[in-house]
Design a protein around this nucleic acid. Structure first.
Lengths: 348, 348
DNA sequence: CTGTACATAGAAAGCGCTTGCTGTGACGTT
DNA sequence: AACGTCACAGCAAGCGCTTTCTATGTACAG
């Protein structure tokens, strides 16, 4: 029914071994033989049996990409960049690799489940994106899993995630703390003294780091933070809208709103506008990430640019063994402050 | 080094066959035995070897999801919904399935490559989302591939794609044509007579169908279309911005702009605003898809709601064999006109 | 008390591929 | 002229699992 290696071998009048070697190209095969084999492959329309090959070779050509929320461009962009680096040559077969993105939905269980599934498939590499969940037992379980994956020969890369020492995973970490600090310092430099902050979900490293940066900036300038100025929410637009309304309710004298990310910032803008406030005249707004739409909105968003595409591509290359891991297995990726129209000096 | 089925069997004092049966749960095993096996699995921290199992059983637990652009929420939402339905029970193992999303980037070659890779992995199912590319030779190649996949036992589902008869694939098709027509008719009903249209990329079925619907509406109302009123672009915000500027340049008397999708519509809004035009007072804007942010922008977008989540979930269920395919293997999914603030009667 | 049916476990034959090792001619060397 | 050397090609042993078929023990009926 299905065409196998043996069929191709028979047709090309060679042994299965030879066919395998032609397909994998890691053993000398005479040009004429190779040609004959390729012709047979073509004529028979042969498709390699992945599982069989993975079993025999003890590695597969699967590369897993874990994301928190596939519907969020933040992850979409990274996933896209990572996938872009997968599929080129570099592996045993010099062949295509199947880059697969797995959507955890931010759930710790699913994160672990996917890792097991990937482990089961003997994935060639795994890239984990986005912040981690701060929960001791989950972190321990993850670390164990990552170490096992690594031990089994799967290359593990963390992209935009805090490092996990002891697991052998390479980490490309976003400097969320530094970015957050720089952003808030910019606002303070503009003259703002009463700044609302819309944070992401609790228990996520990204949320905590950005918030810490924000607070460090306040502290550095002797601004005492009012607890009412911080609201937690999700990393989406709607959440930004609601949180802003809440912030305004708590303290209408706020002159700036710093959002956990650009989507949230967009929601914040909408809420401010709906409340009859002008941006940046009445209230300044700042985001984080610099997603593509951020330069496009009105007014353009002051934000911190995270090199999502570059970091993703690099993570992909490292995962493919095409680029060396940074010294120590850890590299911090800095954000860049993008000064645009949504933030200006407060009135008078 | 790695723990195998045999190790578990030895530890549990049973045969490998029994362990396999416990794990797959499709053969009677005495409760006490099962317990012993599971205990051994746990103690040894055993992880099934996917490739080996796929080889022996001639099926794998991989489910492929093909998307055009993973960074676009349109696809992200569908992918998310599809994946949500994967992983539950329903398969031979009652076990987890690995839902993997593959990003084609709209490239015909990559589409085909991914399909081959999935075929190679003996995927359990494949869901293709988004419009197809209108190119005879590519379509033929795709159809051949899809038929082969189907013949090999892979369930193939098209979600938001035109049907591919003869391939045996189940199709859930969005009624882009009907939606486009209804939308434009709404605008005409409001009194608009000069409508610009920002279409998506040429050669995509989605683009063509929406545009056809738009034109059908114009024709139905005896409006002769000016060729200057249509501009083609990509399905993103920036493209909408540029196309709108172009439209305005060509004919400043336009009273409405219909966009290929919501992202494009957002870009259009920005361009209009930057041109000093108010929405909807000076120019009405309409989108398509009703992505989450569309209700949230200012003014809220009049658009056609496509039940992305529902359709994706249904496609996922069909792919998993958890829901029956629609009669004839084809179901049309209708869009729903969402009347909101971005479109109003033209002035005077 | 024997015979038949049933429930459960094991033996063993692959699934389709990779790869270490073993030929086997064709060359080049002394 | 005899003998390494090399470049290829083939043999065959698995990789770790599933599954058919068979064996065994137990229960129940006659």
């Amino acid at each position: 029914m299905t065409v196998t290696l043996a069929d191709v071998a028979a047709r090309a009048q060679v042994s299965p071994a030879t066919v395998s070697r032609v397909l994998n190209g890691n053993y000398p095969v005479a040009a004429s033989t190779r040609e004959r084999v390729l012709k047979a492959v073509d004529e028979l329309d042969y498709v390699l049996n992945g599982p069989a090959s993975a079993l025999a070779a003890a590695t597969s050509d699967l590369v897993g990409i874990l994301v928190n929320d596939i519907a969020d461009p933040f992850f979409g962009i990274m996933a896209s960049a990572i996938q872009g680096e997968i599929g080129g040559p570099g592996g045993r077969a010099g062949g295509e690799r199947l880059g697969v993105v797995c959507n955890t939905g931010g759930s710790p269980e699913r994160e672990l489940t996917y890792l097991t599934l990937l482990q089961r498939q003997r994935a060639a590499a795994v890239v984990l994106t986005g912040g981690a969940i701060e929960n001791a037992s989950h972190k321990a379980a993850m670390d164990t899993k990552l170490r096992k994956l690594g031990d089994a020969g799967t290359r593990v890369v963390l992209c935009g995630r805090p490092p996990a020492p002891e697991t052998g995973a390479v980490a490309l970490t976003f400097d969320n703390r530094g970015g957050g600090q720089e952003l808030t310092e910019h606002l303070i430099g503009l003259g703002h003294r009463r700044l609302g902050y819309i944070a992401g979900p609790q228990e996520r490293t990204t949320t905590r780091h950005r918030l810490e940066g924000h607070r460090a900036a306040l502290a550095a300038h002797g601004i005492e933070e009012d607890p009412r100025w911080t609201v937690h929410g999700r990393y989406d637009r709607r959440s930004g809208y609601e949180a802003t309304l809440e912030l305004l309710r708590r303290d209408p004298s706020l002159t700036a709103v710093v959002a956990a990310n650009d989507s949230v910032a967009l929601g914040a803008c909408a809420a401010l506008r709906d409340s009859g406030l002008r941006i940046p005249d009445d209230v300044s707004v700042a985001g984080f990430d610099d997603l593509p739409f951020s330069i496009d909105v009105v007014p353009a968003l002051t934000t911190v640019r995270l090199p999502l595409t570059e970091a993703g591509a690099r993570a992909g290359r490292i995962a493919m063994g095409r680029e060396e891991a940074p010294p120590g297995g850890i590299a911090a990726v800095r954000g860049e402050l993008m000064v645009r129209g949504s933030a200006a000096a407060p009135r008078e």
